[in-house]
Simulated scan of single mutants.
Amino acid sequence: MDRIELPTGVALDVATAGDREAPAMLFLHGFPESHRTWRHQIDEFARDHFVVAPDQRGFARSDKPQGVEQYAPEKPVGDALALMRHFGRERFTLVGHDWGGAIAWMLALTRPDLVDRLVILNAPHPYIFQQTLIDDPAQRAASQYIRAFRMPGLEQQIEAMGLDRFFDTTFAPHADPALLAGEKANYLDEWSQPGALTAMLNWYRASAITVPAIDEEAVQPDFLNQPFPQTRMLVLVIWGMKDAALLPCQIEGLDRFVPDLALRRIDAGHFIPWEAPDAVNRAIRDWLPA
């Protein structure tokens, strides 16, 4: 791991692998993880790429600036751009899962000149996600955890119950327990870093996505009534169809916003980079240029 100071005001721990002169791939993890999300992808794609996989701001031992506003999506987008500039890369393949996928969508939409190809793993398109939170009762119900994560003081409640119990009762049920067993110590170590719980939850608190209560008559945000930009690069979306939090409605109608779309459905849950690594690696490898 390298410690890299960025002009965005944070220092990130960054895993790199592969030939630094090879085409670059940037891997962005989500909640509540770290670069280890990609432990089965880093070596595979370092065979013919320069792989960059940071611990994003607020996670593991990367910096954790104070204040919810420090986790608004444009902040990690800025980190990602600064990180690739640090390595002298003007274009790269961008890969994102969960919150890392949300940042990848935003980066690809706002800086298409930099993203050669985009790979999304179980991370909803912003327009479709917001629309389904308004008009799809099942998705709204599945997303109520976001409202809970935004509650003030939740981190103190987690600390009171103990990280070990939080892992066993709140996180582990959403993944294959056999695959998680060997990783538990890594998660507990990362979550126990000073300020980590608040920083990780602040990603949810800083998001502009509206999550209505189950029985709430929701008001549709203005941006849903306006033209939404399309992606301008080749896009591969890999979806674990057993994801209990992000339902299959997230990939319905995706081609409206993603003209050059390749879609791969996988029989796995939300954490597909390590729940179904062979299928994920094969899907990406088959889609990348030879």
Rank of each mutant, 00 (worst) to 15 (best):
192 S>P: 09
8 T>P: 14
290 A>E: 15
107 L>K: 05
158 I>G: 08
158 I>K: 02
30 G>S: 07
98 D>K: 05
131 Q>S: 07
104 A>N: 00
30 G>K: 02
39 R>N: 09
212 P>T: 06
286 D>K: 12
114 L>Q: 08
179 L>T: 04
25 M>A: 11
234 L>C: 06
78 G>L: 12
114 L>V: 13
259 P>C: 08
137 P>L: 10
52 V>F: 11
78 G>N: 10
77 V>R: 02
147 R>E: 12
77 V>N: 02
8 T>W: 05
73 P>H: 03
54 P>R: 01
221 P>V: 00
37 T>E: 02
181 A>H: 03
239 W>K: 09
168 D>E: 12
78 G>K: 09
221 P>T: 01
121 L>E: 04
145 Y>P: 07
177 P>I: 03
228 F>I: 15
88 G>L: 10
91 R>Q: 12
273 P>T: 07
24 A>E: 06
20 R>I: 06
208 A>K: 13
59 F>A: 00
267 D>H: 13
194 P>L: 05
274 W>I: 04
174 H>C: 08
138 A>E: 15
159 E>D: 14
140 R>G: 09
157 Q>P: 13
151 M>S: 15
169 T>D: 11
28 L>E: 03
213 A>Y: 14
192 S>L: 11
229 P>W: 06
117 R>L: 01
72 A>Q: 09
148 A>L: 15
102 A>G: 14
